[in-house]
Design a binder for these strands. Structure first.
Length: 302
DNA sequence: AAGGCGCCCAACCGCCTTGGT
DNA sequence: AACCAAGGCGGTTGGGCGCCT
């Protein structure tokens, strides 16, 4: 938006699937220069695509840190819980599933979860008709439609009881074996590891564990850890568009009752990746070689 | 083997918001 | 205040693929 309106004539844009060559061009360009203004990306890369298409391709496919493949059980439950709270706010839901894109979640919902929920509700409806003693207020309180989280988590409605509260679910996410192996790709910038925030050894010692930031958080001593959470938690997980999702940790540390601000709180990585600073991390050449993927972690070496 | 069918998912479309002029 | 361009987001589409008959 801070871009100058372009004065060039409308180009004929290519549509459809991206070729590997296009991917390579786009990826190399953004890693070197940052996307800056998306509308200028096709011009600078020589791609016959519009800026929007480039942006989408980057966000949904090329962006480092994307986790691909099937959703694990805990991710699924997180989606269900958040969807119950937020409705079709895919981008907000995606903020709480690092490495997943809103598009991916949306697709998963439409292809699988929606049916699953419908089935569950159908069965629930049958159960309810058998047990008519359930109070009407309870039913209203936790209808399947989007709702306020406080209502949902305090509710005793059976559909809520079936799935644990979000906080514990997110906590479970760290414990679940299938997820633990790759709960989120770790994006680590070697240079950042020397930051003052990280010193004191604790981070360095724990860096192999993607969940250490959360697990290190002591819910009983909020204020100190809240600060630590802020200092550490922001920096190391990429979510949508290379944004560092702070909402996840931030939200947990702020709310046991969970407010919606947790969903909106985030620290944008965008500045690093779209600004000149990012260039320092990546030297030219074959940029693929600058990634070192190990155990689902992605390290950037200077 | 081949045609039909359904599912998955990448990508497009259109609307809304934001920010600059 | 109005206009315009860009970004962001949710809904939708359609191509590709696998399964079934």
């Amino acid at each position: 938006m801070g871009c100058k309106p372009s004065d060039k004539p409308k180009a004929k844009y290519r549509k459809g699937l991206w070729s590997p060559e296009e991917d390579l061009r786009l990826r190399n360009y953004i890693l070197k220069n940052g996307h800056g203004c998306w509308s200028s990306v096709p011009i600078n890369t020589g791609l016959q695509r519009n800026g929007k298409s480039c942006r989408l391709r980057w966000i949904n496919y090329l962006r480092p840190g994307l986790k691909r493949g099937t959703f694990c059980k805990q991710e699924e439950e997180t989606i269900l819980t958040l969807h119950r709270m937020l409705g079709n706010k895919w981008s907000q839901i995606a903020q709480h599933l690092p490495g997943r894109t809103d598009n991916e979640i949306k697709n998963y919902w439409h292809s699988y979860l929606k049916k699953k929920v419908a089935k569950a509700e159908e069965m629930e409806g049958q159960t309810k008709s058998q047990y008519t003693s359930t109070s009407s207020s309870e039913i209203l309180e936790c209808s399947p439609s989007p709702q306020k989280p406080t209502t949902c988590f305090n509710s005793s409605h059976e559909s809520v009881q079936k799935s644990p509260p979000l906080v514990s679910q997110l906590d479970d996410l760290s414990k679940d074996q299938s997820c633990q192996r790759s709960p989120l790709p770790k994006i680590l910038f070697a240079e950042w590891l020397s930051l003052d925030q990280v010193h004191g050894g604790s981070f360095a010692n724990n860096i192999s564990d993607p969940w250490v930031l959360k697990e290190g958080f002591d819910h009983s001593t909020t204020s100190n850890n809240l600060q630590a959470d802020h200092d550490l938690g922001h920096g190391f997980v990429l979510n949508d568009e290379g944004i560092f999702g702070s909402g996840f940790h931030h939200g947990i540390s702020h709310h046991h009752g969970l407010g919606l601000e947790m969903i909106n709180s985030q620290f944008k990585f965008e500045e690093q990746i779209s600004g000149p600073g990012f260039v320092d991390f990546i030297s030219g050449g074959d940029l693929y070689n600058d990634f070192n993927l190990q155990n689902d972690a992605m390290y950037f070496y200077k």
